[in-house]
């Protein structure tokens, strides 16, 4: 029988600590699958974030560096400049990348660092208990917006990170996808591969924003959470290639 699917070599066999219905596991698999497909396992260095994916190195069978909250792209810059022949990517959530680390994000992109950034957008701070993220939707109830996020309370609007970065000349590729259904997962994989490709071709900064469910914080079951990504989040954050 022809084997059409298997566990990526770069993905460790480990028990997951992620909640049922969480998107991290899917994206971990997609990233490691792309590492395998490009035959990069021996020369890939990942930079793990602070957040639920802080121990991503327990799942990735590659060299990984930790980074302080928000500093993944600064750390990745140091690594990539010293090891330009290696493939370097950061894996960051919305609080990490779009809030505390926004300066590092913008400047790494603007320098045109030849780094790939996998950006998990779940519209909240997951690990710390569901506070408002820069990407939290209007009206979304969080631990710190108990009445729902409201611009009239000066809580701002969802931050469109990918659109914002697309205006920078150093950015080679930016796309947004989700992992809410198999079709979207496959689309996400295509974007990840394209982002990898840009780094391999030394074309500069590449970003894939992935809308990812967080059922625990959203207080939804996994199916409802996936539907919420498609119906609510994708309304605000349009899917597709933003810069190519």
């Amino acid at each position: 029988m022809k084997k059409v699917y298997g566990l990526p070599q770069s993905l460790k066999r480990a028990d997951t600590h992620y909640c049922p219905g969480c998107g991290h596991g899917i994206v971990h698999r997609l990233v490691t699958q792309a590492i395998d497909e490009f035959n990069l396992r021996n020369k890939t260095i990942g930079v793990a974030p602070v957040g639920c994916a802080v121990i991503a190195y327990d799942y990735w069978g590659i060299d990984v560096s930790e980074a302080a909250h928000g500093r993944a792209l600064a750390v990745a810059t140091g690594i990539k400049r010293c090891l330009p022949g290696h493939f370097v990517f950061s894996y960051q959530g919305d609080g990490d990348l779009a809030s505390i680390g926004l300066a590092e994000t913008i400047h790494t992109a603007n320098r045109g660092e030849n780094i790939t950034c996998i950006f998990i957008n779940n519209a909240c701070y997951g690990m710390t208990g569901g506070q408002m993220a820069p990407t939290t939707l209007l009206g979304q109830v969080t631990a710190t917006t108990p009445a729902g996020r409201n611009p009239k309370n000066l809580e701002g609007w969802p931050l469109m990170v990918s659109e914002m970065l697309s205006g920078l000349k150093g950015v080679s590729f930016a796309a947004r996808s989700s992992v809410s259904c198999p079709q979207k997962v496959r689309q996400t994989y295509k974007y990840i591969k394209e982002a990898f490709n840009r780094q391999i071709k030394k074309e500069g900064f590449s970003l894939v924003e992935i809308l990812s469910p967080c059922p625990t914080i959203w207080q939804k079951n996994p199916v409802e959470a996936a539907k919420w990504v498609e119906k609510e989040m994708a309304e605000v954050f349009p899917l597709g290639v933003i810069k190519e």
Partner: peptide, 26 residues
């Protein structure tokens, strides 16, 4: 060898973290 004018002190020290993690004198 690498010289970077970082966007902030915080970024500079974290770039050094990355370079040091890559095994270079930083």
């Amino acid at each position: 060898r690498v010289f970077i004018q970082a966007e902030s002190e915080v970024a500079a020290i974290n770039m050094v973290f990355g370079a040091a993690a890559a095994g270079e004198r930083a």
